[in-house]
Design a protein around this nucleic acid. Structure first.
Lengths: 339, 339
DNA sequence: CACTCGTACTTAATCGTTTTCGTATAAACA
DNA sequence: TGTTTATACGAAAACGATTAAGTACGAGTG
């Protein structure tokens, strides 16, 4: 590889001059700079990030922790959408993205934090992880700038979806379509506070609307578990007085539920309505098109990236806060009018 | 950050000794090594990859080019599955994964190759990209170890899905279920040779089976385009003699087609059968479950990783070859028996 | 005893940058 | 003319590791 040294001898100047010329310092003559740049290009000079990092202690590399509990990896749609927007944003700002892992490097396996130190990430985004893992907490508590998605830690920047308003808006919309008997197959409680937020918002909104929600209308399903959603949906359909609309933990679950409904020969939304949550692509393709709360994954990813970069580049002035991103009811055709 | 120097003074030995002790060189006394390791841990020593890279010219970092033509980014299921397996494999071998991009870094924007040189990737995997892009070709033609997925370049390692056998097996299976009037809504030709391989295999297998495929049975759709698949399916259904089974470019398209069929009040597979291609998760959730050619994405990702690493670590003995990975017909319920 | 070894360390060069001080030259000023 | 000042460049010290080559010492050998 051709280095600054090669360029410097080819130009008859010192290495320092080459460095400054290439980095746009002002104490270099215009002709000299032009010449150096030209020669560098012609020689095929390529900067060495390792050397630069060693000296400046900056990598322009962002670590991303992305390891779903269920090992679904990069196939978890919702977080993948967020990651996508995050990636695009930091790349535009000249940063690269490297995944954090805890696999052994050489002799021993590293913790997440050790890995980050080893790679010298300028900052870290925790987009999808087990937030109750001690290794994750260790990372969050460290001095490395960090932003988390959909989970809040004390004194750290977080970008979260507005689950309270989301569930409120969705339920209200369903109510406005005339539904009064509304069931909810919610997600498991294993994750962060997401499930709890939505569930309590569901109850509060129902109360606000003057709705009575019988206990047997609220069942525990899980995220992305179509089979379980299928089973739970059957339970609801078996009730003496089944709901007129079922809300699901996410779009995948809604998909599973829809299959259960169709298998009974029922029509959506004529016989019963269905609503999802997330707004990932699958819903648009469902038949009928799924009514769901579309979370603004693009905005979440972008915001996380922007906050993180400002944390990295302007640590003093960056505001440690929790940014709440609102979603929007996507009005598909799976929730029908009643009455 | 605490460096080897800190450890060395704390132990009263030289930096070299610390380095060797930590790296398992044999010319270090056992007590000394134990002591050094203990002190290092206690002091919270953390190795610096930049320094190591500078000296050894190895980063243990793999660059991945993943930029779909359609800008779908990381949401392109099939490639995401491959990427997932690839990532897991290289991480197990102590490598990290960083995305390649061509966004400006500092003054000017970099080409893919420049970016790779800058980051000093030990190797590069092109998992999903526009293979006819000059910048991609430049990267492939460089001296950096590279492996491509689903596209073959001269004298480079490639991992490809066996589209010929795949389509052959799928069509044969459909034939065995008694179908004789089989249509194919294939993908666009824009990408690599994938579409061509499958299409020619489709024709050849048909001939082999003694099937007559009328021209109007073969239509051009596109990958992941449910709307287009919907439209094309309608065309087929409008024919005087419609097919008894329709094959699609991928599972998403099949999904779109299924909706068209259901909207006509037709039953799958009673009235008409449907087959997809890829075997991504969506198919398992469809109703009825989709019969499709399940590509072995896990094996593709793993193989790509293994080949790349051997290319990096044992350049002399590594075999430059094209590895063909076979898929398998997934027998859902969307293709029914006839006759 | 003189010699060769093997063991356990140290010295010092090096990787490619960045950056702080200098310093030389010429222009500007008193 | 002598002094300051701005401009354009260079020398050299880092950053944190790796590694070839050397050294000191005790043990084994003839």
């Amino acid at each position: 590889m051709v280095s600054m040294k090669d360029v410097s001898v080819a130009c008859g100047v010192s290495i320092a001059t080459v460095s400054k010329a290439l980095n746009g310092h002002k104490d270099i003559g215009e002709e000299t700079r032009a010449h150096i740049i030209q020669v560098a290009k012609q020689l095929g000079y390529s900067p060495n990030s390792a050397a630069r990092t060693l000296k400046t202690n900056r990598t322009y590399n962002i670590g991303v922790l992305f390891s779903p509990n269920d090992m679904s990896g990069l196939t978890h749609d919702f977080f993948t959408y967020v990651l996508n927007a995050f990636k695009a944003t930091i790349e535009q700002q000249g940063y690269d993205l490297t995944f954090i892992n805890n696999v052994r490097q050489g002799v021993q396996r590293m913790s997440f934090l050790e890995h980050c130190r080893y790679r010298n990430f300028d900052g870290v985004a925790i987009i999808c992880a087990d937030f109750f893992d001690a290794a994750v907490e260790e990372l969050v508590k460290s001095d490395i700038p960090v932003v988390t998605v959909d989970h809040v830690f004390n004194d750290r920047v977080a970008v979260v979806s507005d689950n309270v308003k989301g569930m409120h808006d969705l339920l209200t919309y369903i109510y406005e379509q005339g539904h009064r008997r509304i069931a909810y197959i919610h997600g498991s409680h294993s994750g962060s506070g997401v499930t709890k937020s939505r569930l309590s918002s569901f109850y509060r909104t129902a109360e606000e609307l003057g709705l009575k929600i019988p206990d047997e209308y609220v069942l525990e399903g899980d995220y992305r578990d179509t089979a379980l959603a299928y089973k739970m949906t059957e339970k609801l359909l078996d009730l003496r007085e089944p709901p007129t609309c079922i809300c699901y933990a996410d779009d995948f679950s809604a998909f599973g539920g829809m299959n259960a409904i169709k298998d009974r020969g029922l029509k959506i939304p004529d016989d019963i309505s269905v609503a999802g949550y997330d707004g990932i692509s699958i819903g648009r393709h469902l038949e009928p098109q799924l009514t769901t709360l579309a979370q603004d994954t693009g905005r979440m990813g972008r915001t996380a990236a922007e906050k993180l970069i400002s944390l990295v580049e302007r640590p003093r002035s960056a505001i440690i806060e929790m940014v709440v991103v609102e979603g929007k009811v996507f009005k598909g055709r799976s929730v029908g009018k009643i009455g």
